[in-house]
Amino acid sequence: EPEARKIVEKLINNGLSPEDVKRWAEKNNNPEVKKAAEEYQKR
């Protein structure tokens, strides 16, 4: 999901860690963003 990846990169560029992004995604019920954050961590 390229859109989710863009969101993850934007949040990380704004100073969030991938863990923060995953928590944000869970709080906002956004499994695509959570998955993208996990993939981002593996890179």
Rank of each mutant, 00 (worst) to 15 (best):
P18M: 12
P18F: 14
R5H: 11
E3D: 14
Q41T: 07
K10A: 14
K34D: 03
E39T: 01
R23I: 11
K34E: 07
A36S: 05
P31D: 11
W24L: 05
K6C: 13
K22A: 09
E32I: 08
Q41E: 15
K42P: 09
A36K: 03
A37D: 01
Y40A: 07
E38L: 07
R23H: 11
K22Y: 10
A37L: 14
E32Y: 06
I7A: 03
K6W: 08
I12R: 02
P2N: 15
I12Y: 04
E9N: 08
G15P: 01
E9A: 09
N13A: 15
V33R: 00
E1Q: 13
R5D: 09
Q41P: 06
A36P: 00
I7L: 11
N29M: 08
A36V: 12
A25M: 01
L11K: 01
N28V: 11
K22E: 10
R43W: 14
N29L: 07
G15K: 03
L16V: 07
L11V: 00
R23L: 11
E32H: 10
K35P: 00
D20Y: 05
K22L: 15
N28F: 10
R43T: 13
L16A: 08
K42E: 12
E32K: 08
S17F: 03
K10L: 14
E39S: 04
K34Q: 10
A4D: 01
L16P: 00
P18I: 15
E1R: 12
P31V: 10
I7H: 03
A37W: 06
P18L: 15
A36I: 14
E19W: 00
K10S: 12
N28Y: 11
K27M: 14
V8P: 00
N14L: 15
K42H: 09
Q41I: 15
V33H: 01
I12M: 10
N30P: 01
E9D: 08
A36F: 08
K35V: 08
Q41C: 11
I12H: 04
K22V: 15
K27C: 13
E19D: 12
E38S: 03
K35I: 09
G15V: 04
E3L: 08
E19F: 00
K27R: 09
N13M: 13
R43M: 14
E19P: 02
R43L: 15
V21S: 02
E38V: 06
I12V: 08
K27I: 14
Q41L: 13
A25D: 02
E3T: 12
W24F: 04
N30H: 13
W24E: 05
R43V: 13
E32Q: 12
V33P: 00
L16F: 13
I12Q: 01
D20Q: 11
N13P: 01
A36M: 11
Y40Q: 04
N28R: 04
E3A: 12
L11I: 01
G15H: 05
K6D: 10
N30I: 12
P31A: 11
L16K: 05
R23F: 07
V8L: 13
D20W: 09
R43D: 13
E26W: 00
W24P: 04
I12W: 02
E39K: 04
A36Y: 09
K6G: 06
Y40P: 03
N29S: 09
N13W: 07
E39Q: 07
E32G: 10
A37Y: 05
E39F: 01
E9S: 07
E9V: 09
K42W: 06
N14Q: 15
W24H: 05
I7N: 01
E19H: 05
N29Q: 08
V33Q: 01
D20S: 05
N30F: 15
A37H: 01
P2F: 15
K34Y: 14
R23N: 12
E19V: 06
N14F: 10
I7F: 08
K34H: 12
E3G: 10
K34F: 14
K42L: 07
K42F: 07
W24T: 04
I7G: 01
A36C: 07
V8Q: 01
R5T: 10
N14M: 15
P31M: 12
E26Y: 00
N14H: 13
E26L: 00
E32T: 09
R23V: 07
K10E: 14
I7K: 03
R43Y: 13
G15R: 02
N29E: 08
I7E: 02
E39V: 02
V8W: 05
N14P: 00
V8Y: 06
E3R: 09
L11T: 01
N28E: 10
Y40L: 09
N29V: 05
A4V: 06
K22M: 15
E26S: 01
E9G: 04
